[in-house]
Nucleic acid binder design. Structure first.
Length: 617
RNA sequence: GGGGCGGUAGCUCAAUGGAUAGAGCAUCGGUCUUCGAAACCGAGGGUUGCGGGUUCGACCCCCGCCCGCCCCGCCA
């Protein structure tokens, strides 16, 4: 039917911008009007294509292959000549040379050369570096540059998704942190993002919980910590039911009543849900998360019947061992491993709800993309879900959004096993974040005892929570990672504290000079960058769009983390090598310009990751 | 048994099919009368699990094997 499959939907790859002004620049002298594209890779790609046309490389598709280069070779490189030469049985260096001869328009901006077997190296001239940096001096300018990439997308991001009546624990950390970062990245790139908390608010556990709630509730404990009390009640209900068949029966009847919408049980269930969601807010606020929707499993209760009918109606669902299941005969595994959409007792399960959710998000929310930030152990489930949804939508003639499982690995303890308390319980998120703050507080107090206590507490909260977030984000999300307080709160290495310190130090410079970073006057009269440290920092600044693009296209925040860490490192080197507060006005202005842009990119980047920043720490 | 993901420096991790595989920690050696030393500079450290293959070029793609973690019918 030609309907979109997950693998060939329009990708999130950035569309090259076409409104760059490279070709109009014909004067190497410094010009405030020099307007360089936000995405220089895309601009160069286009320039190379033009050059290929003029050089007569019109055969079958010349691909420029522009990418950022190792700094020893330049700022960018184009590798397309190699593949083209191979394909056309020509000498790659000759092809590269021919291309370079057609790149005269770039001469005011780049030093262009051919190296090795046929690489084209492009190094920004100091004036061009300066012009790019001058042109991208505000958050708005960055956002405007980035916003083209995803502008036609409406993305539903399904993340966090804890269960009501239970504490959030460390197992919920990554979904929340990665999900939020992904949302912010997509928004910055112009997508309409709908944050949906698909909470687990329906299930058989409510029978035992309601049974215990009616008999064993401690109102004072409920006020003190509602989730803790719900957990206690559930455990009581569970042990009582295990010990006494009569209790089990009563609990099952409570569940039946709830499912039959008995007013009392329904009200109680609703109350539990509301109290739970309210309790989650504390965690979400600390992590900078605000959902647009909280549509839990129960929301879909009355939307499940049509799913059964449709799946049976279009010959997808079949009966197996008393359950309704979907097999995928063409799939080596799922031809025998069923996707159970209705249990043999007639009840729905998460597969059914997930299918109903896809329908809702498509028809009601008009999603073009749905991303699930869920633990990688559920990858089979999502593969079956997407396969089933695709066939179902095909057969019912509906457009299918791009569905994608953003999987992530497990948080491990130092012993290499999933992180738990010493006694083997789940570590509560609330306590984990509190410990992060406390450890940071000890550190701040040791480093800066003269700061007022209130300020040290605020700093500790931001550094502590940020450290946890950053430790999670800075690692490839697909792999497991070892949780280590010492590493994540550390001042050294790729950590939140290192980045936040760089930010604080830049603010400190401006304070010392009695200037404000946002004030353009501090940069007025800046001369082009000269020293090795200035140039290295400037070159790093120009790579921001590339890092942002990599993180957004792959939905992997660690690409941005790596960049921010390198940027902060480049700044520290510059800071140690070149004094900013010199008397010579043009030199001072250009160094302030570098400080200002580094600050802008660090703060923008950290905010996109979900972290808050500080002006002193 | 079937499948997924991983194996890169002593440790924790990076690396768009590109050039000499990079960081941090740890180790060793330097730098504070100068904008915040929570910093910076330098050194040593590698058969990218093993064996084949594809390619001008492979940590990356393909095949086989070894090891680890995870998933595989009515939990989510």
């Amino acid at each position: 039917m030609g309907r979109k499959r997950p693998s060939d939907c329009p990708s999130l790859l950035r569309q090259p911008s076409i409104n760059y002004a490279l070709a109009t620049v014909s004067d190497a002298s410094l010009s405030d009007q020099m307007d360089l594209s936000f995405d220089l890779v895309a601009a160069l790609d286009h320039a190379l294509l033009g050059a290929a046309g003029r050089a007569g490389l019109t055969g079958t598709g010349f691909v420029p292959g522009v990418r950022t280069a190792d700094a020893v070779h330049g700022d960018f490189q184009a590798n397309g000549a190699l593949a083209y030469a191979k394909q056309q049985r020509q000498n790659p260096r000759t092809v590269a040379q021919a291309l370079v001869e057609q790149l005269g328009d770039l001469a005011p901006l780049f030093d262009v050369s051919v190296a090795g077997p046929g690489f084209i190296n492009l190094r920004l001239k100091p004036t061009a570096l300066f012009a790019w940096i001058a042109a991208h001096g505000t958050r708005a300018a960055l956002a405007a540059g980035a916003a083209a990439a995803e502008k036609d997308h409406t993305v539903v991001v399904d993340y966090s998704s804890p269960n009501t009546a239970k504490q959030m624990h460390v197992g919920h950390l990554r979904s929340a942190v990665i999900g939020e970062a992904v949302c912010r990245l997509l928004e910055f790139s112009g997508a309409t993002v709908i944050r949906d908390n698909h909470i687990g608010d329906w299930g058989t556990q409510f029978g035992k919980l309601i049974w215990a709630h009616k008999r064993l509730l401690d109102p004072a404990a409920l006020t003190r910590d509602a989730l803790e009390e719900f957990e206690r009640l559930y455990k009581l209900g569970n042990t009582a039911a295990e010990a006494d068949p009569a209790v089990l029966k009563e609990a099952q009847q409570e569940l039946v009543k709830l499912q039959a919408h008995d007013p009392e049980n329904l009200a109680l269930w609703r109350h539990i849900g509301e109290v739970s969601v309210a309790a989650f807010q504390d965690i979400y606020e600390q992590l900078g998360i605000r959902f647009d929707l909280t549509l839990g499993e129960s929301f879909y209760n009355d939307k499940l019947e049509p799913i059964y009918r449709e799946l049976a109606g279009c010959s997808l669902a079949t009966e197996s061992e008393g359950a309704q299941v979907v097999f995928h005969p063409e799939h080596p595994r799922f031809k025998t491993q069923p996707f159970i959409i209705r249990k043999s007792d007639g009840a729905a399960n998460y597969a059914t709800t997930d299918l109903a959710t896809i329908l809702y998000r498509t028809e009601r929310l008009h999603a073009t993309d749905v991303f699930y930030v869920v633990d990688k152990r559920q990858s089979d489930h999502f593969e079956q879900l997407f396969l089933t949804a695709r066939k179902w939508f095909e057969r019912t003639n509906r457009p299918l959004p791009r569905l994608r499982h953003l999987d992530f690995g497990t948080v491990l303890g130092e012993n290499g096993k999933p992180l738990k308390t010493k006694s083997g319980d789940n570590i509560r998120l609330k306590e984990l974040l509190a410990e992060a703050s406390e450890r940071s507080y000890q550190l701040v107090t040791a480093k800066n005892p003269e700061l007022p206590e209130v300020e040290r507490r605020t700093i500790a909260q931001i550094v502590g929570v940020g450290s946890v977030q950053y430790a999670d984000l800075s690692q490839n999300r697909s792999s497991d990672y070892v949780f280590s307080w010492d590493k994540m709160i550390s001042l050294d290495g790729n950590t939140a504290a290192y980045l936040l310190y760089a930010v604080a130090r830049i603010y400190s410079i401006f304070r010392k000079l009695d200037l404000r970073p946002a004030d353009p006057a501090s940069e007025a009269g800046a001369s082009p960058f000269e020293t090795p440290a200035e140039l290295a920092l400037a070159r790093k600044l120009v790579r921001f769009p590339d890092a942002l693009g990599a993180a957004t296209n792959h939905l992997r925040p660690h690409f941005l983390c790596t960049y921010l860490y390198e940027l902060a490192g480049e700044f520290s080197t510059f800071y140690n090598a070149d004094k900013v507060a010199v008397t010579e006005a043009p030199v001072r202005a250009r160094r302030l310009l570098l400080c200002n842009r580094t600050l802008l990119l660090l703060e923008t980047g950290l905010q996109l990751l979900g972290l808050r920043t500080l002006t002193r720490m």
